[in-house]
């Protein structure tokens, strides 16, 4: 893509597609592999057109076996390739979990630094698309808990474009979460702007009433809530965490020291999760600034429900606003 063009409106899906394309153009060692990523272009069309342009040697369909996809990628990485694996849906990653945790996360360490593992595992996560079981989960905490893995979550088209390229350029394995119900959100992509580094959180909106930290699909939910909260005279400071491992919490600490209140939002169940970690770290670092306990707005500690019930499960604008009322009541 030319860098001088005027900003173009792209969807998050298109941002990923163009980011993958840019990475493949920049480095011949970048490969794309996964179920239906080739001829079909992926069920969400993220890899649309890549096989046509880069060939079946670099963009190839795999059997329906996630363990094999990750294991193959590990071997390719040992031989100097930079594979980008697509896991078709969040709930499909678990057959590959052993390869990710036992091999991908450990080889660099096990080889005393001789074997970097520049593998990206792309996982569409979260619900809200009315899908059946295994298609709407938020498994990011499993990976953030594992040393040796980097875990990031993009939330908008611009981040999607840049973060996928940065993840591919990273020599460590990166679990790359994509908010599947936001694939078709649009934003202007200006290639002239300098992207934020990969492992950084970002303040999206300034405010003084309370800090709301979130990532992935609920970033837009929280931004919508912040807009509505203005009707109540509340200004919410919204932070997109972007990186879940390592967490970049310095901006969150700075914000909480000003607002005294933190709400952490995620679709994942709350117990022993990314939001737990944020709450614990903020309690430790900002203890004397907290005017209310850290509240979390999350999915429930249940299996993801059937599609017809999912809107009662997912954190929505009203649940975020309720949490704002609750932190202000202390």
């Amino acid at each position: 893509m030319a860098g001088t063009d005027a900003p173009q409106m792209i969807t998050l899906a298109k941002g990923l597609n163009q980011g993958l394309r840019a990475a493949m153009e920049a480095d011949r060692k970048v490969l794309v592999m996964g179920e239906d990523v080739g001829r079909l272009g992926g069920v969400f069309r993220i890899t649309d057109g890549l096989q046509k342009d880069f060939g079946e040697q670099r963009v190839f369909d795999t059997p329906l076996g996630e363990s094999g996809i990750i294991g193959t990628a590990v071997g390719l990485a040992v031989r100097g390739y930079r594979p980008v694996c697509e896991i078709q849906f969040d709930g499909f990653v678990f057959p590959g979990f052993d390869q990710i945790v036992s091999q991908l996360a450990k080889l660099h360490y096990r080889s005393q630094g001789k074997l970097p593992m520049p593998v990206v595992v792309r996982i569409p996560h979260g619900g809200g698309i009315g899908a059946v079981e295994h298609h709407s989960e938020s498994p990011e905490s499993y990976f953030a808990h594992t040393p040796g893995l980097k875990v990031v979550a993009c939330a908008n088209p611009v981040d999607a474009y840049w973060m996928i390229q940065q993840a591919i350029a990273c020599d460590d394995p990166v679990i790359f979460f994509e908010p599947k119900r936001r694939y078709w959100d649009k934003a202007p992509l200006d290639l002239a702007t300098t992207p934020l580094p990969l492992f950084c959180s970002r303040v999206l909106r300034s405010g003084t009433t309370a800090t709301v930290a979130t990532y992935g699909p609920t970033v837009r939910t929280v931004l919508d809530a912040a807009t509505v909260a203005e009707q109540d005279g509340h200004t919410l400071e919204v932070i997109d965490l972007r990186t879940l491992s390592p967490l970049d919490l310095a901006p969150v600490f700075d914000s909480v020291r000003r607002t005294g209140r933190l709400i952490c939002v995620s679709e994942a169940p709350s117990e022993v999760s990314v939001t737990s970690e944020v709450a614990a770290r903020v309690s430790q670092e900002c203890f004397y600034s907290l005017a209310a306990p850290v509240l979390r707005v999350t999915g429930f500690n249940t299996p993801y429900p059937p599609a017809k019930c999912e809107e009662d499960y997912l954190p929505d604008l009203d649940r975020v606003l309720d949490a704002v009322d609750r932190v202000l009541a202390y």
Partner: peptide, 27 residues
């Protein structure tokens, strides 16, 4: 909704807030 291969697809309509309850939250 946006058409997807799997599922009904995500809603495109903006979600509006529900009417607020009069009672203020209490800790």
């Amino acid at each position: 909704r946006i058409t997807t291969l799997v599922g009904y697809g995500p809603r495109t309509a903006t979600v509006a807030r529900r009417p607020r309850t009069a009672a203020p939250a209490s800790p």
